[in-house]
Each structure stands twice: as C-alpha cells, then as structure tokens.
C-alpha cells in the first residue's frame, strides 16, 4: 500500500503540492479528484519518482521510495497515462511485453503473459498482437495501455486520466472494464481524474484536492452526504447531488420485495442490480410512479415506488 506523509513539491517558487498526507490501502481504488492545476498529477508522478518530492516521506509497502533505485521502483508499479504513450515502432504484443522483458522474464512466460492480458482486455490476440499503435482506435489503444501497465504483475497501478481523451461511450465501456478487472485482480490503484462522476463510479475512496492541498477524503457516499465545503459541493455537482447519490444506490435496496415467488414481467421494468438513478429516469420519462423490479432472468422480485425514494428516513 501507498503512504504519503506531509509531502510537498515546489517548482522554482511555486508550491504545487502543499504538505499532503494520504494512505491508500492494499486492494483499494483511490481517486484523486480536482480541477486543473490542483497538483493531482504531480502527486501521482511523485510516487513513481518521475518527479522528485521536495519535502515529506513517501512509502510503498513500508519502504521509503527515495531509498530505492528509481528504475527498480518503476518496474514494480504499473503506469497508464492519458495519451497512452504507446511505442509507435513496436507492435501491440511488444509494447505489452516491455516491463516483463525489463524484469528479465523468460520468453515463454512473456508470451503467455501477453496473451493472457490481451484476453483480459478483450482484444483478440490473433487480431491485435501484430498490429501497430497507429492502426488502433482510441479505445483500443487505451486498452493496450492498461494491459501494458498490468504486464509486470505489479501490486500498484498509477493511472493519470487514462480515459480523458475518449468519447463518452468508449469511456463508459472502459470504466466498466476497469471495474471488472479490479474485481478479479484487486490491485492497489491510484486514479487521477477531473471527472467527479468517474470518481464516484470507480473509487472506493475519493480524495479531493485544491491548490495543492487535500480538501476532503472519504467514500463516495460519505462525500455526497457531507461535503466539507462549497468547493467540494460544487465539484459534486451542487444541486445534482441527489441524482448522483441515487446513482450509487441499487434498486434492490429500496424496493418493496414480493412476498411470494414472482412471474415473468412483460413491459416496463427495471433490474434489481440497476441504480436507483436509472429507475428515477425511467419513471420521469414514462410518467409513472412505480416500476416492477426483476432479476437477471426477468422474473419479478419486487416493486419500486417513487414515494419510498423521497420519504424521509429512507437509507
């Protein structure tokens, strides 16, 4: 896990990061959120020593990073950036193989690892292994970037706005990818983004930064429920908070369950695993105040009432 103790960074006379203290537990996806220039990217780059910290201590798994060889450190950490930085003169397979080869893995193991990762990121090997980065779409390139970051099987992943340059549809699909992969691999991920919705969707914990300082940290729910100041409130979308909070809640938690076994529902319904926000949207569109809730097979398991959502005292 990653620990930052009172870390600062000065560029000439500018204080980019001002005494921040942060702890990212193993297996956690922690999002660093803030507007441009708040120091979130700098913080990220201090962790793999692409940028040397001016004051404070940074530890990874208890070891101080300034006592480690920078190249050895970086080979232990996965690094994915917004513009991917894929090597244009190497194929996709060779790109992914970079860190394993730097670590000296035998060729057979490298090959196996590349194939495994291509499959994990849903890029069929026969089609993609031999392609060059210039032949990939934005989404495909970013998938390769993530695969490349995972190649050396690092425990820690640093991601700097990896999905920022993609169109909304591709971005959503890649966010879902990341959630799926994280549920399988449980890496420690530090994820920088300026998009609060992305942070709310992906993170176990959110750290809000402004002007080089940490303004608030906590779970998405905690942040939404109690923003510590107007800045955080604004970032959370001000008046959109209600909908965002609803986006974090599952229909199953707020529905009225059926007492008896249900039957297949035809027509208007919502899945139990979908979010309450989607349910509200459907109800507004269809001008109804209740929806049948179904499970994965289409069998009804309950009813969701609009009343119950706005009643005080609801979870």
């Amino acid at each position: 896990m990653i620990e930052l103790l009172n870390v600062s960074k000065t560029f000439g006379t500018t204080l980019a990061v001002d005494g921040i203290s942060l702890k990212v537990e193993a297996g956690e996806l922690c999002a660093l959120v803030g507007t441009s220039g708040c120091g979130k990217s700098t913080t990220l780059r201090m962790i793999n020593r692409l940028c040397a910290h001016s004051a404070g201590e940074i530890r990874i798994e208890g070891q101080r990073i300034d006592q480690l060889d920078p190249q050895v450190l970086r080979r232990r950490i996965g690094y994915a950036i917004q513009s991917t930085g894929l090597f244009p003169h190497w194929t996709v397979a060779r790109n992914i193989a970079v860190v394993p080869r730097l670590l000296g893995w035998p060729a057979a193991r490298v090959r196996e690892r590349v194939e495994h990762l291509l499959a994990l990121l849903e890029l069929p090997a026969e089609e993609f292994a031999g392609k060059y980065p210039s032949q990939l779409s934005g989404g495909q390139a970013q998938r390769v970037g993530v695969a490349r970051a995972l190649a050396g099987d690092p425990d820690i992943l640093l991601m700097d706005e990896p999905f920022g340059a993609l169109d909304p549809i591709t971005r959503e699909s890649l966010q879902n990818e990341l959630l799926r992969i994280q549920s399988q691999l449980h890496k420690t991920i530090l994820f920088v983004t300026h998009d609060m919705d992305e942070a709310l969707k992906l993170a176990n914990r959110i750290v809000v930064m402004e002007k080089g300082r940490i303004v608030q940290q906590g779970t998405p729910g905690a942040l939404l429920a109690n923003p510590s100041n107007a800045f955080v409130e604004n970032l959370l979308g001000g008046q959109e908070r209600g909908l965002k909070q609803a986006g974090l809640q599952q229909v199953a938690a707020l529905m009225q369950p059926l007492g008896t076994a249900g039957t297949r529902v035809e027509g208007l319904c919502i899945k139990a695993c979908d979010s309450v926000r989607q349910a509200i949207s459907i109800m507004l569109w269809q001008r109804c105040d209740r929806l049948s809730v179904v499970d994965g097979d289409g069998i009804q398991v309950g009813i969701l009432y609009l009343d119950s959502l706005v009643r005080r005292g609801a979870p």
Binding site: Q71, R74, R75, I81, T84, G85, F87, L102
Partner: peptide
C-alpha cells in the same frame, strides 16, 4: 514519459 515511467 511512458518509457521512463515503466522503469527503462
């Protein structure tokens, strides 16, 4: 940047 970041 990516090359440095990966530990080359």
């Amino acid at each position: 940047e990516a090359a440095r970041g990966m530990g080359m």
